Computed example of a mutant assay.
Amino acid sequence: MTAISVLDLTPVPEGSTESQALHNTIDLARHVDALGYRRHWLAEHHGIPSVASSSPEVLIGHVAMATERIRVGSGGIMLPNHSSLRIAEEFKVLEALHPGRIDLGIGRAPGTDQLTALAIRRSREALTADDFPNQLGELLAWGGHAEFPAGHPYARIKAIPTDVMLPPVFLLGSSDYSAQSAAVNGLGFAFAAHINPGGAIGALRMYREQFVPGYVERPHAILTLAVIVGEDDEHAAQLASSGHLSMVMLRAGRPGPIPSVETAMRFQPTDPQQRMILEQVKRSMISGGPETVRARVEELMVSSGADELMVTTLVHDHEERKASYTRLAAALDIAVPEPAAAESVPA
């Protein structure tokens, strides 16, 4: 049976607040933990009114405390926004406090616009630097899974706690670059098909073909999809309309909280660009009743060869979001697992 996991962007519904969205994330985590989902990953985004996931490392600790079985991690930490030493320390602390239940997903995009990224990184040189491979190497060395090269100036620095190794590390991406980087470093890989629907098959094939045992002994590929499961196809289309309009607004440079279904159902694109964006967004999301979604998801899992499915669900109503995950669990026949044991590799 394919494992199913959650990618949570902590969406902010119209008429609510960012603070409530954070509490909704905790509530969703408890819900999917009880349903038998394998992982609950928290995203990193900055300055986007529709999502409140600005500090996944803080949320991870709270979600882990509020749940019992599910693995909790980042989906992902945008490594260029941070120092590798700081991330190594934070995730070793999380692993020490919640042994065997933490994942570290790493991305290389800023997770925001260029001006906000500049404010985060504090210099134009840091904003334009292309040193992700060096950052990743430092992270793995401080995490206890690699060695610094001889004579490296950081070799004597320790990431505390020193008696804990980094939790399982995954690279996240939506391109061949990320797939290749995960493969040559022997890491798990999560492909963002909700961002690049057409790139999954080729990227996951490249990952498997070029994989070299390293941090893990065998490749582990996660396929991330945007999925909404309604009571039937019509109900799902209504729920999905909020996410569709939210993405149209974001890409048109007018971001805002997730609009209500009532607002979204009244929306009509007024120009060719809006119509093009709306069609692209619809193609990137899978929505329907349980049987419709099951057929589509199973088709994509087989064609991609992924080991695990991760789902992000963007709807206005929090209870409907929980209900969508409930319907997905039933449609794909997942079962409640035993309490988590220590896990050193992404099984």
Rank of each mutant, 00 (worst) to 15 (best):
S5N: 11
L7D: 01
V12T: 04
V12F: 03
E14K: 02
A21T: 07
H23N: 06
T25Y: 03
I26P: 02
D27V: 01
L28P: 10
A29K: 05
V32C: 08
D33G: 13
A34G: 08
G36A: 13
H40Y: 15
H40I: 14
L42F: 11
L42R: 06
A43D: 12
A43T: 15
G47Y: 11
S50L: 14
A52D: 10
L59R: 11
I60C: 14
I60N: 12
I60G: 07
G61V: 10
V63C: 08
M65A: 15
M65L: 15
A66M: 10
I70D: 12
S74V: 15
S74M: 13
L79S: 09
P80W: 03
H82V: 10
R86C: 10
R86A: 11
E89Y: 13
E89C: 11
F91Y: 15
A96W: 00
L97K: 07
G105T: 10
G105C: 06
D113C: 06
Q114N: 09
T116N: 10
R121C: 05
R122V: 05
R124G: 06
E125M: 13
A129R: 13
N134I: 09
G137W: 00
G143C: 04
G144Q: 07
A146I: 05
F148D: 03
G151F: 15
Y154L: 15
A155C: 09
R156T: 13
R156F: 07
K158R: 15
I160Y: 05
I160F: 07
T162G: 05
M165P: 00
P167C: 09
D176Q: 13
A182Q: 04
A183Q: 04
G188L: 02
G188R: 11
A193L: 06
P197K: 08
G199K: 06
G202K: 09
Y207H: 04
V212S: 13
E217A: 14
E217R: 13
T224S: 15
L225Q: 09
E231N: 12
S241K: 05
P255D: 12
V261S: 02
E262V: 11
T263G: 00
R266P: 00
F267E: 11
P269C: 13
P269F: 14
P269W: 12
P269I: 15
Q273P: 01
Q274N: 03
Q274I: 09
Q274Y: 07
R275P: 00
M276A: 14
M276Y: 13
I277E: 04
I277F: 13
R283M: 08
S284Q: 12
S284L: 04
G289D: 07
T292Q: 10
T292Y: 03
V293E: 00
A295Y: 00
E299M: 00
G305P: 00
E308M: 02
T312P: 00
T313F: 01
S324C: 09
L328H: 04
L328T: 03
D333S: 10
P339F: 06
A341W: 04
S344M: 08
